[in-house]
């Protein structure tokens, strides 16, 4: 009797061992599968991003040598402005300090390098940041970058909206004196979309993480008030 009991017990131990082994294998294979899924997901993200990036760009006339912004004026001190046409704080900044910067440029104290970065594409449903920045390249081609920029900030659409349509951008361009046919086809063809990407990526590389960012001779200036800008330019010009 006791030997049968022992046999039964031994069989149960073997069954349990087999079950444990089976469970271990199942866990191993589901884990391997899950890791493969995660790695593939990461590679998909990386390759999607790489394929979205364009390698070549054409900078518009009036851009700096690096092709990262449009130059206004010829003064000895360089003011770098990084702005997104959709950014409400940029609009405020233009309203409060735009005139001061204009004066610094027209009096020959400073030149401005305006970087129309597309940081806020997620805040419009139509990638307005990229479209408006590329359109500003078209405006630079037509020699009206400053006028077009001022008009875009004056008619800034709200964040979260569809932004202005290409037709509206073209009308604004025509309103500041651009040739409607040339400018219109440039906007519609997205001639400067790759340039916008280059401007945006270069700004990120330079540590510009938000808009507006103001630099005077390469140093970030946190006081963006008229007095702050004037003081920074005076100090840099000495």
């Amino acid at each position: 009797m006791s030997s049968r009991k022992e046999r039964n017990q031994a069989a149960r131990v073997v069954r349990e061992q087999l079950a444990r082994e089976k469970r271990r294998k199942r866990t191993l294979w589901t884990s391997v599968g899950a890791v493969v899924v995660l790695v593939i997901a990461g590679l998909i993200g990386w390759s999607v991003y790489s394929s979205q990036k364009s390698d070549t760009f054409t900078a518009p006339p009036g851009a700096n040598d690096a092709g990262t912004g449009v130059v206004l004026g010829t003064g000895p001190v360089t003011i770098d402005l990084y702005e997104d046409y959709l950014c409400p704080v940029c609009k405020e900044f233009q309203q409060t300090s735009g005139e001061t910067i204009n004066q610094l440029v027209s009096s020959g104290k400073a030149k401005v390098v305006f970087h129309p970065v597309a940081y806020l594409n997620r805040f419009s449903t139509t990638e307005y940041s990229t479209r408006s920045s590329a359109a500003s390249g078209c405006a630079a081609k037509g020699g009206k970058f400053k006028e077009f920029t001022d008009a875009l900030f004056a008619q800034q659409p709200p964040e979260g909206s569809a932004g202005l349509s290409n037709d509206q951008l073209i009308d604004i361009g025509a309103g500041v004196g651009l040739n409607k046919d040339d400018f219109g086809s440039c906007v519609k063809d997205g001639t400067y979309t790759a340039w916008t990407e280059h401007v945006t990526e270069d700004a990120s590389k330079d540590g510009v993480t938000g808009t507006p960012t103001l630099k005077v001779n390469g140093t970030a200036v946190s006081d963006r008030s008229p007095a702050g800008i004037t003081a920074a330019v005076e100090a840099a010009g000495k």
Binding site: V37, L38, I40, A41, G42, L43, I44, G45, W46, V48, Y49, S50
Partner: peptide, 12 residues
């Protein structure tokens, strides 16, 4: 590269 991969890893 991490910023591009991360959203897909999170979704997975």
């Amino acid at each position: 590269a991490i910023g591009a991969a991360l959203p897909f890893v999170e979704l997975a």
